[in-house]
């Protein structure tokens, strides 16, 4: 039973991962990533990590993916150019990925970790449930927990600054545009450009 669940979830996770890189439209890539995240949550449940699985579904598949879908809808999925700056990139990249996989597998499986081939010890019933994780977070890992919350706050402020309407950014641009800027922005950066966009 456990093996069947593992292989089903593994096929879902791998299929989702390949779907992300194979889809032309970024919107379908986001949908494939949601499939991948749900399969990964099932794998976490198999590993008796109930809290991590729930956080995966709620935070990732819920909140973060909604953010992605909004940005894809705003930006629009453009087709990618067929131009290759590195000749043979389409053949070299899979080669490198396979080499990375073989390297990682050899590195892990040839290590002398004897417990790798075993099922893992029997764990008590409350292993990995929200109470256990919360106790660890608030007692043993209090400092990393607070540091990550500050980091999250900084990232939110940074995103607001980055994606805001650039009122101040336009004030910083001098009256005579430097030649480098003109090349980047083909429509002339008139003061009304910010209001339109």
């Amino acid at each position: 039973m456990e093996e069947v669940l593992f292989f089903l979830a593994a096929i879902g996770a791998l299929g989702g991962a390949f779907g992300v890189i194979a889809m032309r439209n970024p919107f379908y890539s986001v949908l494939a990533l949601i499939v991948h995240l749900f399969s990964l949550a099932a794998l976490f449940l198999l590993l008796t990590a109930a809290f991590v699985a729930a956080a995966q579904v709620v935070v990732y598949a819920g909140a973060v993916m909604v953010l992605y879908v909004f940005v894809v809808a705003y930006v629009g999925g453009g087709g990618e150019s067929a131009w290759e700056p590195i000749p043979g990139q389409r053949f070299l990249a899979p080669l490198l990925a396979v080499a990375l996989f073989v390297e990682l597998s050899v590195a892990v499986l040839s290590s002398s970790l004897l417990a790798l081939g075993a099922d893992g010890p029997d764990v008590p019933a409350g292993f990995g449930n929200p109470a256990a994780i919360g106790r660890l977070l608030l007692e043993k890992f209090l400092l990393p927990f607070e540091a990550s919350s500050i980091l999250l706050l900084l990232a939110a402020v940074g995103a607001i600054v980055l994606a805001s309407n650039r009122r101040q950014g336009e004030g910083d641009i001098p009256d005579e545009p430097s030649p480098n800027r003109e090349e980047g922005m083909s429509p002339s950066p008139s003061p009304t450009a910010g209001a339109i966009s």
Partner: peptide, 28 residues
Amino acid sequence: RMVGNAQGQVFAVIVMVIAACEVVVGLG
């Protein structure tokens, strides 16, 4: 799970926070 110690799951939760930060800044 292999070690039978839940501290690794706390690491996973923190990695999730880092990923959320990266997504927010990247999408911005």
